[in-house]
Simulated scan of single mutants.
Amino acid sequence: MRIIKKITGKVIYAFGQFLSAIFDLFIWIAGAAVSLVAGIASAVAALIGMGGCLLILLLSTPAGLLLLLNPVTLMAIVFFVVFPILGYKFISFLKYLKYIVTEYLFDLGSYLMDGKGQYKSFSEYGHKYQRMEEERISRERAERQQQQQREWEERFRQWQSYQQQSQQQGGYYRQQPYSNPMTEFRSRYEKACSTLGVGTDTDKYQVKLAYRKKAKEYHPDINHSPDATRRFQEINEAYEFLSDENIERYKQMRN
């Protein structure tokens, strides 16, 4: 009986490895297809931007209107806009499915082979994957915030150094002019506060509460309006910018 369980466990574990490879292949194919379509869409958008006025004139003609209203043209526009959005969601779903299926099989196989550990229900693996994703997003956000802090600190350091050199040379220090970063910082800070709907005298607790409310309202999985993805990205960028360090820096500027 023990031998049968061990053999069954090996078969299940090997099947999990096989499924993992199949999932990786489909994820790679889907990623390549989405990247290709998104790249073509970006290139077309760039060409349209370069010849915007000419394109408007062409589309205002009867022939241009017929071309624009042609079902094939409309389908192409919808495809290049919608496919990348759905593609990224499909890839995320494949990664989620890969994790819960393969981890279940790996744990079950190990349990049958060695009698160690335990296997759980699919829903428990799903919850674990969601927690892992939340931790990954939080970790990446923290890394971006730290990088932003280093960049702002370097810009302020260069500005102070430039001012000191300019004062020492009687205001004629022109070796490498620097623009005052305070103006841009204030503008970005106030814009971020406006995006989240908080005052400029906010604190980290108000920022976190406002972010959760806005992120839930404009999350693309819940909000299906055309600008939901853009707004959701702006909300995340605003939240990342309103770090404890930047809140304190802004308050010091006002004092």
Rank of each mutant, 00 (worst) to 15 (best):
M1E: 07
M1D: 07
K6P: 02
I7A: 11
I12H: 00
I12T: 02
A14Y: 05
A14H: 04
G16W: 00
A21H: 06
I22A: 15
F23Y: 15
L25P: 04
L25E: 08
G31W: 02
A32T: 13
A32D: 07
A38W: 06
A38I: 05
I40K: 07
S42P: 00
S42E: 08
G49T: 05
G49R: 08
G52F: 10
C53K: 08
C53H: 10
L54Q: 12
L55N: 03
L55V: 05
S60D: 09
T61M: 11
A63I: 13
L65P: 02
L66P: 00
L67W: 13
L69M: 12
L74K: 09
L74P: 00
M75I: 12
A76M: 12
V78A: 15
V81Y: 10
V81Q: 07
Y88Q: 10
K89E: 12
I91H: 01
S92I: 04
K95P: 02
I100K: 09
V101P: 01
V101F: 10
T102N: 03
T102F: 01
L105F: 08
S110N: 14
L112D: 00
G115T: 05
Y119E: 03
K120Q: 09
F122D: 09
S123P: 03
E124K: 14
E124S: 13
E124T: 10
Y125E: 06
Y129H: 08
R131N: 11
E133S: 11
I137T: 12
S138V: 06
R139Q: 14
R144C: 02
R144W: 02
Q148F: 05
Q148D: 14
Q148N: 14
Q149S: 11
R155H: 11
S161P: 03
Q164W: 13
Q164M: 15
Q165R: 15
S166F: 03
Q167M: 15
Q168D: 13
Q169N: 15
Q169D: 12
Y172E: 14
Y173E: 04
P181N: 09
T183A: 11
E184K: 11
R186T: 03
T202C: 04
Y205T: 10
V207K: 00
V207W: 00
L209I: 04
A210I: 00
Y211L: 01
Y211M: 01
Y211Q: 00
H219N: 13
D221E: 14
D221P: 02
I222W: 11
D227A: 11
Q233A: 12
E240S: 05
L242K: 00
S243N: 00
S243Q: 00
D244Y: 02
D244T: 05
N246I: 02
N246D: 02
E248A: 12
R249L: 13
Y250C: 02
Y250R: 01
